[in-house]
Design a protein around this nucleic acid. Structure first.
Lengths: 411, 411
DNA sequence: AGGCTTTTTTTCGAGCCTCAAAAAAATATT
DNA sequence: AATATTTTTTTGAGGCTCGAAAAAAAGCCT
């Protein structure tokens, strides 16, 4: 049952709120923080004095060219980059990348690595992940505060508590508890996050104007994934990362999907599905991975002339449109960001998509639904992981105490 | 942006928590409240003294046959039935019902009324609603505390803020701001709620064991509706009541739905759709309303022998199964309550439903998905409205102050 | 019956937290 | 140099929750 508010929670929450206001605003003055949080100046003054004394915030000496105004000039408060650091791990098809990020959000160090995820045995895959993290952690250049959190973004389904990868299209392996493995190996709290969810988190930070309370990030790549933000919060399943938009049923008993089932959206709109359709291969054929370059070539050909290639994109658009319509029937329409290599071919997809969505209950105002595209998902996933980890540090380490009161931060 | 916690919010929230604990538990002692809320005994003592003094709670003199225990006996705290009252209005196809309910949740007075919703002009429909409410409010037997809240449950789509009915299958009229009309007429704060959402709320109170954090209530009637509770909270769309499960697309371009579109789940599983299919009427035929008695007869016939009737239910099950599978792909599987006249025929629907759902990503563990049935939706809707209104009184009237601090309750 | 034990509830003082108002600080304007 | 303006800090008051201790209200035991 929901629990009462203890007296100590008050300061904790307001501390977290101040930190969050600074992270969001960049260099707000105390007065600005008071305005956005609704707390009094004295409270903000007290809390920020604490945070500065603890080395979490710092007064920004950086002489911003503030407009000349009468009165005492505002002093900007900024996150102290050295207060902590976080580490992101992004594991996607045949690709592993790691970055160390300081408390202010700047990349300090990074490393990337190609590997054959599809065929690697379990121990080797885990070993590679651990090894690349270890190398980054032992980097002598790394003099930023100790790494306080690891966020791993994985293409695939994770559990609600962000502990494990349950299933992934990039490997036949299942149920790898990456978070536990990382914590055990490095003694640093870690989470395992779904890639599309991290895309959504990143978009929220990148463009809070457009992606604020309700929006959808859809990954158009080998598979079809979705990250969903509703009422300002990331939407996840009750047991898993959820939002498996790609496996909503478009046509019962239809085309063969990579997941082994039939008729999923992905079986019409995933890279392999578009390819299969364009090449005139049977819908029952086992999906094969198609390189990004091949997909770009396919899109170019589809643009050049009408033919099976263009028809393949049309069918993908139709599948996406009807399924988005079904989704919108549940949650109401929201802005959409199309991410991934096939988002670069969205011009080929959009007409059929809009035509389909207009035939659904969720697409009632289909012309007002806006789409944005972003061809490269990896930077988004990393940014999302970074923000996930950083906000964890903000809330759980620098404003600790929730239920199990953690050790106090000592200066 | 999220707002800081003021000092006065603390007491307010804990007050609300105590009230909520009492409503949930029935007659908890102070000690029990302290345990469930996590607050200290002294705090509970102080808050409950206030609440008793204000006439919101009362010590239950009712000599419960508590097991003989050593020590000072616990004093049960109960809601004071006379602290306030709420009024529920349920408007469904050709039927209007109103009830007055005391603060403890007991029905004090009620009235029901048949009317032709499908053909009534706007003014008349609104007039009937206002008249029946006025009669109940003026009932001389009504000596319970003044009515503090009205909750109206309507079959159809409402807006997020529960102010208006946007669209409904029971009338060609649209955009009726019932909440505003009621408030203006009677000066009592009111809301307009979606019927299926209220069903879900009621189930949560009726059987909190089974329907706690994640579950689905599906109305199988003329149309197909859904109320969805995720992570303990009612799920609504971003602009409307949302959860229009009945208008997810089952077969793109398929059977004609009552909403004018094609291929919706409802066009296969709504009463009219089952009837149409059983009678061998074309899928393109305009939907007609079918009486409950006819539906019961149809189900009986389907049970009796294999034939087009049984096949119609099978097709309904298939549509429901694939769509539930798509839904579960998004939110993960959860317990389902089937409500409404066709829920009584769930035995005819279930086999095909399970077969279909097993073919979807969301139905991975389809055998573990459990269904419960409840043929009568009206009592559920009324209960849901009652609890909705009562918890509003709990939180907004008896623990006021959120942002715009309301006048304090004076004894 | 009367004292003892057990459990619940209330009382009381301490420690925090937030807030409003006043004071201090820092700069532009006159 | 004095004044005006705006931001930040200081200070005292009031409220809230908590822990400990006291009070209350029973059953238990001799």
């Amino acid at each position: 049952m929901s629990v009462g508010i203890r007296h100590d929670d008050l300061r904790r929450r307001n501390r977290a709120m101040v930190i969050s206001a600074v992270r969001r605003a960049g260099q707000p003055s105390r007065t600005e923080i008071a305005a956005t949080t609704g707390l009094s100046h004295s409270t903000i003054s007290a809390i920020s004095a604490d945070l500065i004394q603890e080395g979490i915030l710092a007064e920004s000496k950086a002489s911003e060219p503030t407009a000349l105004k009468r009165g005492r000039p505002q002093i900007g408060l900024a996150l102290n980059p050295e207060a902590a650091a976080v580490l992101t791990v992004v594991l996607s098809l045949n690709f592993l990348s790691v970055a160390v990020i300081d408390y202010a959000g700047q990349v300090v160090s990074e490393e990337q690595h190609r590997l054959d995820t599809l065929v690697m045995p379990r121990d080797e895959l885990i070993g590679e992940c651990m090894a690349i993290v270890r190398r980054r952690l032992q980097d002598p250049d790394l003099d930023v505060g100790s790494v306080a959190r690891i966020a791993m973004g994985i293409q695939g389904i994770t559990d609600t508590h962000s502990r494990a990868m349950l299933w992934s299209p990039i490997t036949p392996l299942t149920d790898i508890p990456f978070a536990d493995l990382l914590e055990k190996e490095f003694g640093i709290p870690a989470t395992t996050e779904n890639d599309c969810n991290m895309m959504a988190v990143a978009l929220q930070w990148r463009d809070p104007e457009r992606y604020r309370d309700d929006f959808i990030a859809i990954l158009l790549s080998h598979g079809i994934g979705m990250g969903l933000v509703l009422k300002g919060a990331l939407f996840t399943g009750t047991h898993s990362s959820g939002g498996e938009f790609g496996h909503m049923i478009h046509r019962p008993g239809g085309a063969l999907c990579r997941c082994g089932r039939r008729g999923c959206v992905e079986a019409y709109a995933g890279n392999y599905a578009i390819w299969r359709s364009a090449m005139g291969i049977s819908e029952d054929a086992t999906p094969t991975d198609v390189g990004d370059a091949d997909m770009r070539a396919l899109a170019a050909k589809a643009r050049q002339q009408d033919g099976p290639e263009r028809e393949a994109y049309r069918r993908a658009g139709e599948a996406l449109g009807f399924s988005l319509g079904s989704l919108f029937a549940l949650i109401d329409p929201a802005p959409v960001a199309m991410v991934g290599v096939s988002a670069a071919a969205f011009d080929l997809i959009e007409p059929a998509l809009r035509e389909a969505i207009a035939q659904t209950a969720g697409g009632q105002h289909s012309e007002s639904i806006s789409f944005d595209t972003e061809p490269n998902e990896l930077p988004l996933i990393r940014e999302g992981c970074a923000m996930r980890a950083l906000t964890f540090v903000d809330q759980e380490i620098f404003a600790p105490g929730g239920q199990a009161r953690a050790g106090k931060h000592v200066e």
